[in-house]
Design a protein around this nucleic acid. Structure first.
Lengths: 169, 169
DNA sequence: ATTGGTGCAAAACTTTTGCACGGTA
DNA sequence: TACCGTGCAAAAGTTTTGCACCAAT
């Protein structure tokens, strides 16, 4: 957010971050004996400014735009840290790539995934959640997380497909 | 296809296969202008004898055991054919790998996936299915398939983890 | 000083594809 | 004969890891 000069890295790490997400991150870092670095701050900052879902590559590109010196590996590993402390969670896209999304103060939800354009639409349904716990119980299975993905076509792609079909008719 | 003695390839392809699954496969092959080959017969045969879930690599290993001359590529591509004609369907495992399972006369179901040992337990719940369609509808989303996976620990792994914890205590 | 962090390059893996040769119809 | 199928090798696309050097505590 800051950006007092040119590099956001400096901005993000120079002052002590107040946002709750950073608190959580710093706590996790301290608790596990890791270290606070400018790169990690910057990566978290960019991630938080992100809407929707990003792959590690996506996030790397965004970060690089603000500080080209940060490497992919660091983004990749930081994303893992963010998962560990509950700031990010991942979703497997329909094509197998791993995407990340915010997971702080974001109630759990599932996804409708358009296999044409890749868009992810979020939804939540209490009943489904309850039934899932019931099912796990019946199988003496200890559920940790779950992933419900409905694949198909979003409205835009349905319209586009329709138009396309008309053209070839 | 030669090799009239010890190899199952011969067994599977020498005579005309009667099983309904083969009917379906042959129909699909004929319908799309493809060709019936000993390799494909053998791969389907092995796949049908398979229980549970296999990756293309897994199936390749099984096939190789009966006919080392069959290559991975053929197994891989045949698995795609089997999907096309509805004999197989795929599930993304928790680690991103693609697994295949029987999909003929097997009503749709979802999975409980143990992240410790990889085991997949199947289940089905009518209510969840209905709610999903409702949700898609509400979003003007045209559902094609879905995947509901509950990750966690199966009973065996819970017990093992418990024992392990006791040991380190 | 220590111990962890970083970026680069390379390794590991899976999934796909290009091609030349051989088989099916 | 005309096409399709097959196996091999290599391409692609990601996710991971090893390492030498740098930075945080």
């Amino acid at each position: 957010m800051p950006k007092s000069k040119s590099h956001a890295v400096a901005a993000a790490s120079a002052e002590v971050e107040e946002r709750e997400e950073f608190r959580i991150f710093y706590d996790h870092i301290k608790r596990t004996g890791l270290k606070k670095t400018g790169q990690r701050d910057m990566i978290l900052d960019v991630f938080l400014r992100t809407e929707g879902h990003v792959s590690s590559e996506d996030l790397y590109e965004l970060v690089k735009r603000e500080d080209p010196s940060i490497g992919f590996t660091t983004v990749y590993r930081t994303l893992k840290l963010l998962q560990e402390c509950g700031l990010a969670r991942n979703v497997q896209s329909y094509d197998g790539r791993m995407l990340y999304e915010h997971d702080f103060k974001h109630e759990h939800h599932d996804h409708l995934i358009c296999t044409s354009c890749g868009t992810l639409i979020e939804f939540f349904n209490e009943t489904i959640e309850k039934i899932q716990d019931q099912i796990a119980d019946e199988h003496r299975f200890k559920p940790v997380t779950h992933s419900l993905r409905i694949f198909g076509l979003c409205w835009e792609c349905q319209v586009a497909a329709e138009a396309d079909a008309r053209r070839h008719r």
